[in-house]
Structure formats: structure tokens, C-alpha cells
């Protein structure tokens, strides 16, 4: 893996090709006070093509939610030009304030100020269950 240009920060690797900008926006990297590069359509032995984001700055990254968006992503933490940690993302057990329940009879459709919370019901099929009304949600992407 090429970590050129990153002194201390992250290389977010194996992003599904074409979704790099989406991940960039989700991480609000336009607001980040550091150098950021999106590299699109990199040839990958594993996935055909992939996108990569390089961040030269030690900013907080929400790996939990990132795992929900794309569980195939790898987050490489870099310190002083060396690989510090390789984090393989996975679907999070609990999702808080990422998606909203689509059941119109759910209390979250009317009550303000409460967390929109889901628990992973089935990893294989990416099913999440609303903790309030127990409705199963799939296929968010």
C-alpha cells in the first residue's frame, strides 16, 4: 500500500470504486483542516477497481458508521510515515443517528430529540432492527 504524502493521518483503502466522494462527504472532509486526496479508480488485485482517500492529519474518524456504509473498507492509521494500525471495518452492532426508521407507526416518526437507534439483526443480509418498534430494515444503500 502506498502511503506517500501522509505523515500522520489515514489511508482509507478498498473503498468501492465510484463511492470515494460519498465517503469524503460523509466524513465531512471538506471541513477538515488538513491535506486530503481522493484517488479514484485505482486498479486493485482484490476488487478490480477501488477508490482511496488519503488524509494527512490526525482527525477523528467514525469507523463504526463507516463500516455501515462499506464494510469492505480498510482504515490504515499512519504515524510518522509508518503504518500504526490496520482496521478492517465491519457492520456495527449498533447504529445511532445514521438512518431513520421507515415505519410510519414508529414513535421516532413523531418524538423529537430521541436517538434513532438500530441493532444489527442479521450480518449476512445486512438487516437492522429498530430498537423502538422492532421493524426490520434492509437495503439502505
Amino acid at each position: 500500500m502506498n502511503i506517500d504524502g501522509v505523515n500522520t493521518g489515514y489511508v482509507i483503502d478498498h473503498i468501492k470504486a465510484g463511492t470515494g466522494l460519498e465517503i469524503y462527504n460523509f466524513l465531512k472532509l471538506d471541513k477538515a483542516d488538513c491535506t486530503v486526496a481522493i484517488i479514484q479508480r485505482v486498479e486493485s488485485t482484490k476488487y478490480g477497481y477501488k477508490d482511496i482517500i488519503k488524509i494527512d492529519g490526525d482527525i477523528p474518524i467514525d469507523c463504526n458508521t463507516l463500516g455501515y456504509m462499506d464494510e469492505n473498507i480498510t482504515v490504515n492509521r499512519i504515524k510518522d510515515r509508518k503504518l500504526l494500525e490496520k482496521i478492517h471495518l465491519e457492520l456495527p452492532e449498533v447504529l445511532t443517528n445514521v438512518i431513520r426508521c421507515r415505519n410510519p407507526r414508529c414513535i421516532t416518526s413523531v418524538e423529537e430529540g430521541i436517538e434513532h437507534r438500530f441493532r444489527l439483526a442479521d450480518r449476512e443480509t445486512r438487516k437492522y432492527r429498530c430498537v423502538y418498534c422492532d421493524t426490520l430494515h434492509t437495503d439502505f444503500q
Binding site: 407507526r105 423502538y132 418498534c133
Partner: peptide
């Protein structure tokens, strides 16, 4: 009438909450 409302209630209550039917 909304599903999960008593669950929300129980999170804020300082006394026991019984669900008497939520939708």
C-alpha cells in the same frame, strides 16, 4: 398509538413504566 413509545417513556421515567399497549 405509536410503536415503541412506552420504551421511550421508560428511558425518561424515574418510576416503573408498564406498557398498556403501543399500537
Amino acid at each position: 398509538p405509536k410503536e415503541g413509545a412506552p420504551f421511550v417513556g421508560a428511558q425518561y421515567a424515574s418510576v416503573p413504566v408498564i406498557n398498556a399497549g403501543d399500537g
